[in-house]
Amino acid sequence: MPPAYHPSRAPSAKAVQEGVKKAATEAKLTGGLEMSTVRHSDHGPGSYFVCLRQTGPSAGGRPAYSVFFDNDEYKGIQSSVLSEACEAESLVPLK
């Protein structure tokens, strides 16, 4: 018999912090960062994601990224797409 399907769960706060830091390094983001709350995704490399963006005086022109997770596992970062609505999301500073 095939193994039973177990849907992914949202990542823990610690996993999000670690994943976002790893993603920022991969994307070569420097300085302050801000991110959204965890949201479910129906596309991309993971079942959950957070929006990520650099902060600073010219933050308005900086692109947003989506950081993906399955459970507590970081799955990757990519430029945010329109359907993720990261530009409209309320972001908070990453601590």
Rank of each mutant, 00 (worst) to 15 (best):
G31S: 11
V16Y: 10
Y5A: 11
Y48P: 07
K14C: 00
L94P: 00
Q17F: 13
K21Q: 15
K21F: 10
H6G: 00
Q54K: 12
S58A: 12
S80L: 03
V50N: 03
E84M: 13
S79Q: 11
N71P: 02
K22I: 08
P3H: 02
P57G: 13
Q78R: 12
P63V: 05
V67C: 05
Y74R: 01
P7N: 00
L91E: 05
E73H: 11
D70Y: 03
R9G: 07
R53F: 01
K21W: 07
D70F: 04
K14N: 10
T25Q: 15
L82Y: 10
S41E: 04
P45A: 05
Y74T: 03
F69D: 01
V20A: 09
P7V: 00
S58V: 13
P57N: 10
A4N: 01
Y74D: 04
M35K: 15
L52N: 01
L91D: 06
L29V: 10
A15R: 06
G32W: 07
F68Y: 15
V92K: 14
M1W: 05
S41I: 04
S80C: 08
G32C: 07
Q54R: 15
A10Q: 11
Q54E: 15
H40F: 01
P11C: 05
S8Q: 09
D70T: 11
M35D: 04
V50E: 02
V38R: 01
K21M: 13
S66H: 01
V81T: 13
C86P: 09
Q17N: 12
L29E: 09
S90H: 10
V20K: 07
M35L: 15
A85H: 14
G60L: 09
S41D: 07
A23G: 12
H43F: 09
F69W: 06
P63T: 08
F69Y: 08
F49P: 06
P2H: 03
S80P: 07
A64F: 12
P63I: 03
D72T: 01
K28W: 06
I77C: 04
S36M: 06
P57A: 10
L33I: 08
G61N: 14
A13I: 03
R9I: 11
R9H: 12
E34M: 14
A10M: 08
S79V: 08
I77P: 01
F49A: 03
F49Q: 04
K21D: 12
D72E: 02
Q54I: 06
K21H: 14
E26C: 02
S41F: 03
H6V: 15
G61W: 10
A15V: 08
R39W: 01
S66V: 13
K21T: 09
E73A: 13
A27V: 10
C86G: 09
A88V: 03
S58N: 12
T25Y: 07
D42S: 14
H6T: 13
F68Q: 02
A13K: 14
R9C: 03
A64H: 15
S41T: 04
Q78T: 13
K14S: 14
Q78Y: 03
V81S: 10
L33W: 06
S80I: 05
L52I: 04
K21A: 14
A4C: 01
Y48A: 03
E18N: 14
I77Y: 05
G19K: 02
V67T: 04
S90M: 09
